[in-house]
Amino acid sequence: MQTPAPFEYERATSLAGAIAALKAAGAEARVIAGGHSLLPMMKLRLASPERLIDINDLESDLAYIREQQGEIRIGALTRHAELLDSELLAEHFPVFRDAEEVIADPVVRNRGTIGGSLCQADPGEDLSAVCAALKAHVVLQGPSGERIVAMREFQLGPYVTVVAPDEILTEVRIRTSPGAGSAYEKVERRAGDFAIGAAAAALEIEGGTIAAAGVALSALAPTTIEITRAEELLRGARPSEELFEQAGGIASEDCAPMADGRGPVDYKRHLAGVLTKRALRRAAARALQTEA
C-alpha cells in the first residue's frame, strides 16, 4: 500500500495554538482536518509536508452551522455529512444538500470538511462552486487577526488560494434572504467520482423578478468559475425557460474546460449549458416554491 513520507505531527488544542504552530513551522507545515484530499496526495508523494497540524480537536470551536446576523455561518471543521443533514442549511440553501448528496461517498463525507474542500481548491471540487454561486465569504484567521475574503477572490489558480501559510480558514458566511432558491446539478462518470461538470445556481426572486443571481461551475475551467455574464443577464429579468436557456448558452461560451479522461472540451461546454439551465430552473422553482 502507498505510504506517506515521514513528517512531524502535532495536535492543536486551540485555534490560536494552531496558528502559532503554523507560523513557527513555516511554509512546510500543513493543516490536516478530514485528510481525504491531503493524505492521498501524501501517499502518492505528490505532497510531502514536514509537519502536520491536526485541528480535529477544535470541533467545539470550528464545527457548527448557525444563523447569525442575517447570515448562515458554517465552521470550517463542519463535515460533509453534517452539511448534508443540516435542516437549517437545506431550508436556506438547498444547493448544499444537492451537492452533498453527490460529493464522494457517505463514508468519506463523515471525515471531509468544508474548510478542507475549499482550501484544496481542486477545480473539480463541488463546494467551491456552491459557495461561489451563493456569493459566500470566508473568514481567514492568522497571527495578526482575521480577514474576510469573498469567494470570488479566494482561488488564485488550480489548488492555490489566498490563504497564507500561517492562516487557517475558520468560517464560511452566506447572507440569507427571503425569496432565495438554489440548486446544484452534476454529471459524474460514476457515483462518488469528481464531476465531469457541475453547475451551482442561486437566485433571489422578488416580485417575480430576479433580484440577485449567482452561477458557478465546477470542473469546467482550470479553477472554479463564476459565469458573471450569465449573472448579469439574469439580474432584473423575469425567470423563464428561455432566459435559463440563454444563461446556459453563456455558460457554454464562458467556461474554459480542458479535455481529460472525463471528456473532451466540446462535451464539457455542452454540459456547462445543460447543467446551468437545469440548476437555474430548479433554483427558480425553489425560490418560487413551485418545485415539483
Binding site: 462518470r189 465531469i196 472525463r262 471528456g263 473532451p264 462535451y267 455542452h270
Partner: peptide
C-alpha cells in the same frame, strides 16, 4: 459507454 462517449 461513458457520458462523453455516448454524447459524441
Amino acid at each position: 459507454c461513458t457520458p462523453a462517449r455516448v454524447w459524441a
